[in-house]
């Protein structure tokens, strides 16, 4: 019975590199957006200085999806008020760990995100 209840592992391939549908020029300085990365949400954002960054968007507290806050240039989880800095380091609220870092590259106009 227990074996029946435990779902089989997903057959979806876990990609280590994903080319996003978003163009690099679409992400303006001091803004961010959530994109699918291997079936999970990732946060791709551009700092005020124009640097493009990517992090896992899954909050390390209780798995809500975080967002980039332009007015504070930080990353915020609305569920329990957890805050991370622009490097994904947990700085206030309940999150126990930093967000997982992802590598981001721009090829022409395309954004490519990959696991570190």
């Amino acid at each position: 019975m227990l074996r029946y209840l435990v779902p089989p592992l997903s057959s979806e391939p876990s990609l280590s590199e994903v080319e996003l549908d978003v163009k690099a020029s679409e992400i303006l300085p001091n803004s961010g957006r959530i994109v699918p990365f291997s079936g999970k949400p990732a946060l791709v954002f551009r700092s005020a200085s124009g640097e493009l960054k990517a992090l896992s968007a899954t909050c390390t507290h209780l798995a809500c999806t975080v967002q980039y806050r332009p007015e504070r240039a930080d990353i915020w989880c609305a569920c329990h008020n957890g805050v991370y800095d622009a490097n994904g380091v947990n700085i206030s609220g309940p999150p126990p760990r930093p967000l997982t870092k992802l590598e981001v590259n721009v090829r022409g106009e395309k954004i490519v995100v990959r696991r570190v």
Binding site: I34, L62, Q67, A78
Partner: peptide, 23 residues
């Protein structure tokens, strides 16, 4: 699933005390 948790998100009133405690 690929949008951030919206501001002001909270559960039904009967789970609010647990939700707030977790903060």
């Amino acid at each position: 699933p690929f949008s951030p948790a919206p501001a002001g998100i909270r559960p039904e009133w009967y789970f609010l005390s647990m939700f707030q405690a977790l903060k």
